[in-house]
Amino acid sequence: MILTLTRRALMGTALAFGLAGAAAAQDFPDRAITLVIPFAAGGSTDVVGRIVADRMSQELGQQIVVQNVGGAGGSLGAQQVAKADADGYTILMGTVATHALNPLILKQKPYDPVADFAPVSLLVLVPNVLAVNPALPVNTVQELIDLAKKEPLAYASSGNGTPLHLSGELFKTMAGVDITHIPYKGSGPALTDVLGNQVPVIFDNLPSASSHISSGKLKALGVTTAERAPSFPDVPAIAETLPGYETYSWNALFAPAGTPPEVVETLASAAKTAMADPAVVARMAEFSAEIVASGPEELAEHVKAEMTKWEPVVVEANVSLD
């Protein structure tokens, strides 16, 4: 009899928790949401994240608070979200670094890019750009290659193992040059040093570098996509000098694994509406970010495809990190 009552009590408790969880999902969101940007302020992911967070806040009726958690090529911020409560109130602005490159490069795996996250929406595809301080006496990709063969040069990136780092390594391999890599904790700090001419060359995301290119504080030599970027049609593609060269970045929303499907769908729907807003479309067009605004299933497939695509690049560049 006691055993029967205990079972009934357990069943009742489980049912109560299940109903409470369902009610919480239906009421989502009823408080502020934290969007973790896994890089320092000022970079491409930060720029896109803040634009999206602002518009999604309007759609959801609750503020999305941006939290920058830089370091380890995005792994620290991603790990924080992977370990967060699976209730939708802590989400990640993921990138090719957090969900394709780090899992391939890091010897110690702080999280699983598939098992530890619930995909929400692939937001945008983002071109990268090769740029230099105007004091460097080069105006084209070929002139940079020629200079690098004559004297030592260094390039900055947002961190070890990031797509910008690998964009530089792929460039070095294809151009047959040796340019020293200087990693930073995000595009913001890297840009600061290149603008100050502490480092002459940078591989950066186009969104974070675009205003400096437009103002003349940076000289863009080439975009990393196969075609020229619509927002900077006068800037050649690096592939015009190095045929076959192509890299790009992307931004996507992820929640912790186990987040209720209804919550994921609410977030994905808000993201899709936000990305369709004419003001957001115009902002993204300023730096040639291609809007995707996918659903969760499409993002899951994208992550798998990206890991497959980048694995041979990582192997060729011989990049691994502790």
Rank of each mutant, 00 (worst) to 15 (best):
A53N: 13
A276L: 10
A317E: 11
F232C: 01
G94W: 04
L153N: 09
P137E: 13
A175W: 01
V314L: 13
P29Q: 03
Y248N: 15
L92R: 03
A190M: 09
G61L: 00
A118T: 14
T266R: 08
Y155V: 11
F287P: 02
T140H: 03
I291V: 12
P261Q: 11
V96T: 14
V315G: 14
V48M: 06
G295Y: 08
G216P: 01
S167R: 07
T162N: 05
K219Y: 06
N133C: 10
V66L: 06
L19Q: 06
A300W: 07
F232A: 02
K309P: 03
V138L: 00
A276N: 14
G61F: 02
A20E: 10
V126N: 10
L153F: 06
V315A: 15
V263L: 08
D178I: 14
A255N: 02
P183A: 04
G188S: 04
V66M: 04
R55M: 10
A271V: 00
D193N: 08
L122Q: 05
S57L: 02
L15D: 11
D146P: 06
L136G: 12
E301I: 08
G186C: 15
M174D: 00
T192C: 02
V303G: 09
P278G: 08
A135Q: 14
V263M: 05
L125F: 14
A100K: 01
D46T: 01
P296Y: 02
E311S: 09
S288L: 10
H165M: 12
P110K: 09
L267M: 08
A271F: 00
A148W: 05
L122I: 11
